[in-house]
């Protein structure tokens, strides 16, 4: 194709998206669109898969059967969400193996929030309430994104995710209304997860390199700072309701803006964790790579068994 033809196709492509038409796997698309989508969707899938680790850690130690079935179901949903997203990503012509390889080699990123440790039961509450809360704010606009398979996967994800946040908030509420020790535990979890949750919504708009293009492709509908403000405004009253204190001395209601002003975020910490120096980066990767490598014989055995069954069927047919 000549350069002019490509320019022409690109123009038509952008117009289709502007008209809110969806792009499907076999449609022509600019290479950059394909690459950006593989990057974002796989990052998202990896986050779901790695995101199971900090919570999986607490399944066997959940304080009651009610809490245990809920946590188990939540972690299972995350596996499911990872799978929806990986298969949506594969429609762009990248194989599942390549995607895993990118995760395991550290080439692909996942949400850095999962590089923090989960040291008490209250962390299960804080993750559901804050981390899933922030994730929902990020994800809801994606249900309407331009790439069909991604939008369809996100609709399923969002439908399932709302119970995640409620189960987390319920844990926090129960602890906050419990003994003084339980309340302290809830407050301590909020103290540790508040700032990383705010960082989870991404660098400030001034620092965000992908925003403009992503807005055009509807991979993003609101800027990181807008999403963050939305998260803060919706979460602060929830904390007040259960008698917990947001760990930010600068937080205060701004009557004029009808929004909360908040303190400065420690972006050095964010970039440190992104670069692999968070408290749990190594541990998470190790657990993931081990699971993959130690499962290899199972995957091979399943394949060998399937082939044997197939061969037997064919022999009988002759």
């Amino acid at each position: 194709m000549s350069e002019e033809q490509i320019k022409n196709l690109e123009k038509q492509f952008e117009e289709r998206i502007a008209r809110d038409e969806k792009i499907e796997p076999k449609d022509w698309m600019p290479e950059k669109y394909r690459k950006t989508h593989i990057r974002q969707m796989s990052q998202h899938a990896h986050s779901e898969i790695i995101g199971m680790l900090p919570e999986g850690n607490w399944i066997t130690r959940a304080p009651s059967l009610r809490r245990k079935v809920a946590l188990l179901a939540k972690v299972q949903d995350e596996a499911g969400h990872g799978l929806y997203l990986y298969s949506a990503c594969e429609t762009l012509g990248v194989s599942r193996d390549e995607l895993y390889e990118q995760l395991h080699s550290g080439k692909a990123k996942y949400s850095s929030i999962f590089n923090y440790p989960t040291i008490t039961w209250a962390d299960m509450g804080a993750i559901g309430w804050l981390v899933d809360g922030a994730a929902i704010i990020n994800q809801v606009p994606l249900c309407n994104t331009s790439y069909g398979p991604y939008a369809r996967a996100m609709i399923r994800v969002c439908k399932e995710e709302s119970f995640h946040q409620r189960q987390g908030f319920e844990i926090m509420m129960k602890l906050a209304n419990g003994t003084p020790e339980q309340k302290d535990m809830a407050q301590d979890a909020l103290n540790r997860w508040w700032w990383p949750s705010l960082m989870m919504l991404g660098p400030t708009d001034a620092e965000s390199i992908h925003t403009e293009q992503s807005m055009k492709w509807k991979l993003k509908r609101k800027s990181n700072d807008d999403l963050r403000q939305q998260f803060i405004d919706q979460t602060v009253p929830q904390a007040e309701l259960i008698g917990l204190t947001i760990p930010d001395p600068d937080l205060k209601w701004n009557e004029e803006r009808q929004s909360y002003d908040f303190g400065e975020i420690n972006w050095d910490e964010f970039w440190q964790v992104v670069k692999g120096h968070g408290p749990m980066n190594k541990e998470r990767m190790k657990a993931r790579v081990n699971a993959w490598e130690e499962g290899e014989w199972v995957r091979d055995a399943a394949m060998a068994y399937a082939e044997k069954k197939q061969a037997r069927k064919q022999k009988q047919a002759i």
Partner: peptide, 23 residues
Amino acid sequence: FGSLHAADAEMALENARDVYTRR
């Protein structure tokens, strides 16, 4: 509903149950 990886049709059915019909 979507797609998934499985060794054979039977496993694809079992996995589809867990991945796509949890609710």
